[in-house]
Amino acid sequence: MALKSTIYKAELSVADMDRNYYGTHLLTLARHPSETDERLMIRILAFAIHADERLVNAKGISDTEEPDLWQMDLTGAIQLWIEVGQPDERRLLKASGRSEQVMVYSYSSASPVWWKQLASKIDRARNVSVINIDPESSAALEKMAQRTMQLQCTIQDGQIWLTDGETTVEVLREVWKA
């Protein structure tokens, strides 16, 4: 018998002063049985960073043809393709050809090794950006994961804070490819 996804619900309020974007999003997230709470929270963080009315959760981990998040224009063309974790070269190059912009959010302590092997292979993909989330930040986000969450994200001057009302995490990150 196959394990089913666990449903998480999050009310995410975003105040992004850098983009002048303010909004509240009701997210229903299916956590695949192989997905960790840490990865789920990085998906929520990526949503907050790129929050938009047309940004949606895709099948991601359970479908090799879709990212974790994507945003399409009114014609159905993919504007933004967001991957969480350590996708392989082929997946990123394919995404690069299908989307205007590709964002990768890596978050594990093994990410530097993954990036060292991948960097030269995707250098020609000009529309791919790679951001590494500090392992301490992602571990702190993981502790915030609950089946029902109310989260607030504040982005100002390139700094990001995510809070659940009890705990506030400053998300430290490093841009590996812009």
Rank of each mutant, 00 (worst) to 15 (best):
K4Q: 15
K4S: 14
I7C: 00
K9G: 01
A10N: 03
L12C: 05
D16H: 07
D16L: 07
D18Q: 10
R19E: 13
G23P: 04
T24Q: 11
H25S: 11
L26T: 06
L26V: 07
L26W: 06
L26H: 11
L27A: 03
L29Q: 09
L29Y: 13
L29S: 01
P33W: 06
P33T: 08
T36N: 12
D37I: 03
R39A: 04
L40P: 02
I42H: 01
I42V: 15
R43V: 01
R43H: 00
R43G: 05
I44W: 02
I44R: 01
A46S: 13
F47T: 00
A48E: 04
I49Q: 08
H50L: 07
N57Q: 07
A58R: 02
I61F: 02
E65D: 13
L69K: 03
D73Q: 08
A77W: 12
A77C: 10
I78G: 02
L80N: 01
V84P: 01
V84S: 02
V84R: 04
G85I: 00
G85D: 02
Q86M: 14
Q86P: 06
R91M: 02
L92W: 05
L93P: 04
A95L: 10
S96L: 09
S99E: 02
E100F: 10
Q101V: 09
M103L: 15
M103R: 09
S109V: 11
S109D: 14
A110G: 13
S111Y: 13
P112L: 08
P112N: 10
V113D: 11
V113K: 13
V113W: 04
W114V: 07
W115N: 09
K116R: 14
Q117R: 15
L118C: 04
S120M: 09
D123E: 13
D123N: 08
A125V: 10
N127G: 08
V128K: 05
S129F: 11
I131S: 05
I131D: 01
I133D: 00
I133M: 07
I133G: 00
P135N: 10
P135R: 12
A139F: 09
L141F: 07
E142I: 07
E142D: 12
K143L: 14
M144A: 14
M144G: 12
M144K: 10
A145W: 01
T148P: 01
M149I: 11
C153E: 01
I155G: 04
Q156R: 13
D157F: 12
G158F: 05
G158A: 07
I160K: 06
I160R: 06
I160Y: 08
L162P: 03
D164A: 05
G165M: 06
T167W: 08
E174H: 12
E174V: 10
W176G: 05
W176V: 07
